[in-house]
Amino acid sequence: MRLRAHIPMTNGAQSDLRHLRNALICGFVLAVLSVASLLVGATGIGLVSLMSDPNAWDILLISRVPRTAALIIAGTSSAIMGAIVQRLVSNRFVEPSTMGTIDCASFGLLLGLLFAPNAAPMGRMLIAAAGAWIGTAFFMILLRTVPLKSPLMPPLLGIAFGGVIGAMTSFIAYRFDLMQSLSAWSTADFSVVLKERYELLYIAAAVTGLGWLLADRFTLAGLGDNVARGLGLNPLAVLAIGITIVAGVSGAIVVTVGFIPFLGLVVPNLIARWRGDNLRRSLPLVAWLGAALTLLCDIFGRLVFHPYDLPIGVTMGVLGAVIFLGMILRKFGR
């Protein structure tokens, strides 16, 4: 403000300056959280230990760097997937876990474990993604055939659908003594992330990047079939591409770190309130908040019962549920 009094500036230059300042603040917050994530853990790492202790470098490179990278990628991708499906379904309350996507990915993973127990991680990811694709496509077809009036109906339908698939998965897992593997996928936990055991997440990052490039098309598809068609877009083709992207990312996340609850629901909604739903405008912020919240929850989980880790599924579950309830109460309390 003071700057404006001295230097006459055009509107554009002013808003550029504001954008730059906001970007710097966001970048700074993310940098601080990343450094904290690199240093905090059962074994604390500091400048002194890095200089004197060779083990500290091992811990940093084998465990902390992969864990931090995994947190940022998984957080960013999950939040962006939430934002994309919310546009595709035109509903604020859906995300991969309330559409059956995650349950179907787990189901696929379980079938993979049963029929191809020696499959490479990549193969497992593809099977999980295929499961996610079929489940998501089924849910989308269901939504398009059964017109639903209330905005709460699609997520409820999705949760019920996911519940059925989840029950089948549990039953099979129970019969074949795979319950432990199952719970490992369904609760997100980054303490298992080590070098050479998380690299599939880079595929999730690449697929998310593809989704980012198509942001305009997803926003446009969210304006309804008629408007999209009128502007020369084929809504069904966009839907198919969107399902493929979401299934690919969900598959990679479920196989590596497990699904992070609430993130895809809460982050896009918080950003939409402030920045709107035009994905081209909102995705940078969605990505940032997704990464920041994920880092924050994981660091907190490493600190509360130090030196033990609380899985992010628990910390994010609590934080996400509180934010989500707050949003719903505000929305329906008005």
């Binding site: 546009r87 035109s90 509903n91 604020r92 905005p151 305009d216 926003t219 446009l220 969210g222 304006l223 309804g224 008629n226 408007v227 009128g230 502007l231 020369g232 877009l233 939409a272 309130r273 709107g276 739903d277 035009n278 405008r281």
Partner: peptide, 25 residues
């Protein structure tokens, strides 16, 4: 170009964003 009757939007867009989508084709 065509504008149908029912233009209920669930997306939170600014006026300028919506109009800019008219240039999409």
């Amino acid at each position: 170009a065509m504008l149908k009757q029912d233009n209920s939007l669930t997306a939170r867009l600014t006026v300028a964003d919506l109009v800019a989508f008219g240039r999409f084709p």
